[in-house]
Write a protein that binds this DNA or RNA. Sequence first.
DNA 1: TCCGGATCGTAATTTACTTCA
DNA 2: CATGAAGTAAATTACGATCCG
Length: 358
Amino acid sequence: MDMELGLYLGDAPVRTPKQPFFLADDSHKNAGVELGLGFCMGDGLLERRDEEDEEEDEEELEDERRGTASSAHPITSLQHLIPFSRATKKSSLKPPWHTGNSGINMDGCSRGGLDVNMIPLMDETDQDGGGSAAAGTSSSPNSGGVSSFQMDLSIYRTGAGTVEGIERASSRASDEEENNGSTRKKLRLSKEQSAYLEESFKEHNTPNPKQKLALADKLNLRPRQVEVWFQNRRARTKLKQTEVDCEYLKKCCEKLTEENRRLQKELQELRALKSAHPYYMHVPATTLTMCPSCEKIASATTTPTLTNNKPDNGLEINHDGQKTDSPWSSFLNPFWHQQKTPTATTTTTTRHHNSAAL
DNA sequence: TCCGGATCGTAATTTACTTCA
DNA sequence: CATGAAGTAAATTACGATCCG
């Protein structure tokens, strides 16, 4: 007996532009529960928000731009890093570079936690030249506007506020000016920036342009960087999900192989039994009244274990006491229930026939 | 302790595709 | 219907950090 495995990757990540990231569907969830796998990653949260939500976001954005956000504290904890969260939106942080024209938040400095990364080293006009220009043209490959942020980062890495750090940042910036931004310099985002983006990703795995802009604004990144970050993040998530799926399917395959082996063995036994007792098959099938699919009680001659092998939970139990139907099987093949009924009926009826004959 | 290669994580780029005005 | 812009996924490249001998 060859089992035909309707193996497919569950929701078979057919992506649509409106749902670029596939979410674990119900079958996944059930399966995850059944096998104890962490099948539904946190990305179930990552559904797109409705249009009305976007309107809310616009309002928030407006508030931010007007400077009406209540908090003026620098990023200090994850709670403050959630940009669009309903829970935190009224207390959404006001990044240091939003507090005034100077762009330098003395509060952040005074705490010793000076995050130079957050401090725009260029003046407002320069920033517009770099960031906003990139915003206008969403795709700015190797744009020359990299230097401002890279300077920030190099200082951040070298040691906040140290003369050495600033000097190194300056030299690096000048190097880039020499190269005219032609080099593909990779910069690492700060922990705060990553955390912020991560939290944002939980809210929207595909932010709209305004949200990107707001994020870029908040994190002192170019919109293009935010966009790239989300692209990569989605890719990573999908890769991870694929790995999980793969692992899960491997387990499913093992289980099915084991079941197949068991059924083969059972079939062999039945054949042996048939050859040993050639008469039992001559018993008319009409003498057997029990049918597992309709759960009618068999004749009194049948053994209890075979009389009604459907427990209350609806799962069939084979002669080994194993459940033969499980959520993961239905996950693997959604038509399992439709298919298995006649099969199971046939098999168990035969078994009843056997037992009746015996 | 320093050095250099291997490896890993991830930022950035390129390409192909879809959608929509 | 054709077209171009915009957005995204997927693939790839390349950089920086870390590990290890």
